[in-house]
Amino acid sequence: MVVDDSAVVRGLETRLLEADPQIKVIASVGNGQVALQTLERHEVEVVILDIEMPVLDGLSALPKLLARDPTLKVIMASTLTLRNAEISLQALEAGAADYLPKPAASREISADGAFKHDLIAKVKALGLARRRNQQRPGAKPGGTGFTAARTRQEAPVKAPAVTLRQQAPVVLRKAPVTAEAVDIIAIGSSTGGPQALFTVLGAMKGSGPLRQPILITQHMPATFTTILAGHISRSAGMDAHEGQDGEVIKGGQVYVAPGDYHMTVESKGTQKVIRLNQDPPENFCRPAVDPMFRSIARAYGRRTLGVVLTGMGSDGTKGGAMIVEAGGTIVAQDEATSVVWGMPGAIAQAGLCTAVLPIGEIGPYISKIANKR
Rank of each mutant, 00 (worst) to 15 (best):
A85E: 03
I87K: 05
L72W: 07
A97H: 03
P101L: 14
L89S: 01
A94T: 08
L80C: 09
A94R: 15
G95L: 12
R68N: 05
P70R: 04
I75Q: 05
L82G: 09
I51M: 03
N84M: 07
P70W: 02
A96W: 08
K73G: 04
L92Q: 05
K102H: 06
L59F: 09
L82P: 00
L89V: 01
P101W: 11
Q90M: 13
Q90W: 01
A94S: 13
S60H: 15
A85P: 00
G58V: 06
L56W: 15
P103G: 04
K64G: 03
A85H: 00
L49C: 04
L72D: 15
L92F: 05
L49G: 01
E86T: 11
P54Y: 10
L66I: 15
M53K: 03
K73F: 04
L80G: 02
L49R: 04
L65T: 06
D50N: 12
S60T: 14
L62C: 12
N84H: 14
D57I: 07
S88Y: 01
L92S: 01
R83P: 00
E93K: 15
L72N: 13
L65W: 09
E93T: 03
A96Y: 15
A61Y: 11
V47N: 06
D69W: 06
A61Q: 14
A97V: 00
L100I: 09
E52Y: 03
K73M: 13
L89N: 00
T79Q: 11
L56I: 09
L100C: 07
E52T: 08
R83H: 14
D50C: 04
A61I: 10
P70C: 11
P101T: 11
L66R: 09
L49I: 07
A85S: 11
L56E: 13
D69H: 10
L72M: 15
L100Q: 04
L66K: 14
L65D: 12
A67P: 07
V74A: 15
D98G: 07
D50I: 09
V47Y: 07
V46D: 06
R83I: 03
K102T: 01
M76T: 02
I87P: 00
R83W: 00
L49N: 01
T71V: 02
N84A: 11
D57R: 10
A96Q: 14
A94F: 03
G58S: 11
L92D: 12
D57S: 15
L72E: 05
L56N: 10
L65H: 05
P63E: 11
A91V: 07
I87N: 02
V55R: 14
E93G: 06
V55M: 08
R83K: 14
P103L: 11
V46P: 10
K73C: 14
T81K: 10
G58R: 02
E52G: 00
D69I: 07
D98N: 14
M53V: 05
L100T: 05
